[in-house]
Amino acid sequence: MTTPPGHKGTVLAPLQSPKLRQAVFLDRDGTVNEEVHYLSQPEQLVLLPTVAETIALLNRHQIAVVVVTNQAGVARGYFPEQRLEPIHQRLQILLGEHQARVDGIYYCPHHPSAGLGHYKAYCDCRKPMPGMLTRAAQELGLDLTQSLMIGDRESDLQAGAAAGCLTALVRTGYGHETSVAIDHNRVRGIGTFDSVGDAVEAWLGLNKH
């Protein structure tokens, strides 16, 4: 898989077993944390209710949790790419307060038209392309066909479907607007839910059958 210039993923924990695992992929802004227009400071990151508890549940089930996020603010020059590291450190700290953690955080810093310099690029990592998910699967040993992508935008669900995952829309962030306009035939959706917790509960229920 070709890695576009500037594309980076932070792998936060190696697998202990070669067996492929299920995963839940989560969009970041509007899904894991409150939507902030071009969030650029660590202190702006505030977890949405029940997200940490849901991630802790997945941790206990040994289901990988991976954040995949478009970061066009980097591409547009609104803040430097280096700012993402402390933002994601804060995310892990907040989760850790609830005995929760994510296994990896992957981001796309590109934009095909509004990007500046080498960030102006057509890439396979910017959702709705599935590159972040497929890279995570390769690096973390994940079974995409047994995994779930949760997000608040149609591009999140399109990326999940393109990677072979089931998908779920949440009404947080831009989810209300998305639920009106979404083409459900393109996203392999299991439904629209009020929260990440509700989506994961429904998906875990499907896995029991």
Rank of each mutant, 00 (worst) to 15 (best):
S40L: 06
R28H: 05
H37A: 11
R83W: 10
E34R: 15
G73F: 07
Q44A: 01
L39R: 09
Q16K: 10
F79D: 07
H37D: 14
V51H: 02
L84G: 00
E85V: 10
V68G: 02
L20V: 06
D103Q: 08
I93S: 11
H61G: 01
L15N: 05
R60T: 08
D27K: 02
A100Q: 06
L47H: 05
A52F: 07
L20A: 11
V32F: 15
P18G: 08
H88K: 01
D103V: 09
V102L: 07
T50H: 07
V46D: 02
K19H: 10
P86N: 08
I87G: 03
G104N: 09
A72N: 11
P18D: 13
H88F: 15
P18C: 09
V46W: 01
V74T: 05
I87C: 07
Q41M: 10
H88M: 15
E81I: 13
A23T: 12
Q71P: 05
V67A: 05
L91D: 03
I55W: 07
S40N: 15
Q99T: 05
D103K: 01
V66I: 15
Q41S: 12
V66H: 05
Q99V: 08
S17E: 13
Q89S: 11
H98M: 07
Q44W: 03
S17W: 14
A52N: 09
L58N: 03
I63M: 10
V51W: 06
R28W: 00
